[in-house]
Design a binder for these strands. Sequence first.
RNA 1: UUUCCUGUGGUGCAACGGUAGCACGUCUGAUUUUGGUUCAGAAGAUCGUGGUUCGAAUCCAUGCAGGAAAACCA
Length: 555
Amino acid sequence: MSEEKSLNFIEEIVEEDIRAGKHNGRVHTRFPPEPNGYLHIGHAKSICLNFGLAKRYNGKTNLRFDDTNPVTEDTEYVESIKDDVCWLGFEWANELYASDYFDIIYGFAMSLIKQGLAYVDDSTAEEIAAQKGTPTEPGTANQYRSRSIEENVQLFEEMKAGKYPDGAKVLRAKVDMASPNMHMRDPIMYRIKHAHHHRTGDKWCIYPMYDFAHGQSDAIEEITHSICTLEFIPHRALYEWFIEKLEIFPSRQYEMARLNLTYTVMSKRKLLQLVNEGHVDGWDDPRMPTISGLRRRGYTSASIREFCDRIGVAKRENLIDVGLLEFCIREDLNKTAWRRMAVLDPVKLVITNYPEGQDDILHGENNPEVEGGEGGRDIPFSRELYIEREDFMEVPPKKFFRLGPGLMVRLKHAYIIKCEDFVKDADGNITEIHCSYIPESKSGQDTSGIHVKGTIHWVSVPHAKTAEVRLYDRLFKSEDPSAEEGDFKDDLNPNSLQVINAFVEPDLATALPGKGYQFLRKGYFTLDKYSTAEKLVFNRTVTLKDAWAKEVKKG
RNA sequence: UUUCCUGUGGUGCAACGGUAGCACGUCUGAUUUUGGUUCAGAAGAUCGUGGUUCGAAUCCAUGCAGGAAAACCA
């Protein structure tokens, strides 16, 4: 109650509006994706903001597809977007489409024409661009600007009727060709596209532009707070101009900074390119910053919501350290993931004083963070184990609390062992480590009195299951790939995916899809969508924090 | 060199004329049968210059820096 978190600037505006009794205190937001790609973590920020606002202020949020460009849009995207919003844990009040409003918007256009505020222009795209001027030079009017209302009405009707080919004519708002705001220099409202629309089919061959569809849709739905990103600031004047001239519901547009994350790109155009050119395994490749990619990677929706909460909302450009996202998923998974053992880079260890052919069943809790451990599982133990190659050093440095000649460690959930000997092959690689174990040091009933500094994980050789494990690293080499010169794809990290074969404890054969597992000391993992009963496939969600790696790096 | 937006520790976000705070990261140390977790502590910031004021991160002026704006994309 007392921890009164400060409001972001949008919440301040909303609270002010409520206080002033604007729209009778009603709050209605919308999330307006264009169905031409998959949602990414940047969209999650917008989703959390829009739906969060509604939740906080007792309002509603519409899911509205901004589907005004039939050539780039597809129902596959519509479905994925709905899945992702649901998965993130939000419920929309209405599922709507800008295309549902095409008739109304056409009427709006006609109304503007009849007010003498819109005209049909026969210029080519190049001519229009040239007449627009530049940010420092005013634009110039052409002869079509002075067409009569009657002529404009007839021409626009003919455009709708399909009398003209693509690009032959456009409908333009008659605003101000000399405005310092380029978007006010008679923006295009409608263009001709003889294209099949994913919802309206072939009913239309003219489609409204963003500027003549988005604000109008907001007004139709009586959206009170229409939140978008900074690049739409110059559009706001136009947004309000249309509302004023059309005398429709006065929705208001507010702009916030989009999310940028280190070591990735966030533009749908670039992400689409990575997909189309096969640099990744589809939109849901675990290295992608897409919601579906993060989900497949093992991120939980709670961790993404937490992340969006932590990054805040403001108007300055930002570049968020991906480390914060990793912090959020570790924080969540630490509390929920079940612990298991897996050896990713194995070397064989033989316990010389353990009877050959003998098995032992040990027990390990599922989750030490929860009282009672959330139950546990049996772990078979035997004379021959796999341990991590990096857990043995022939010449260990000081502060190395693992295995080396004469050194002792505890095998997690098992016994303390002492390294007696090791075997090397002709190339000098360690092929086998020989240890003795201390029978009275068994976990939970240790009477040995021996204390060791290190504990390592292991898997019993005869009981081990094999699994393919996919280790991911950042997709790009530099913090801000878009800022690099040349093609952003030149910055792709060639080592962003490493596929290995690992040995995992037998219980993992029954791992559940969608569940996070902590492979002790190695990180958090989850089943990949390609995993089968015959062939287990795990994705590494994120590594554990590794103080030793940091120590080593320091040298 | 037109118009607009933005400048607070390394990063992100607060402080709304009254002691610059939180989180991630970094660095110590403690605990630990995960070099994880947890706990304790430390370092580190108001773009510059003027002005208004008893008092400025906050208001004003100016300079500087970064970003955005000219698709029949959204």
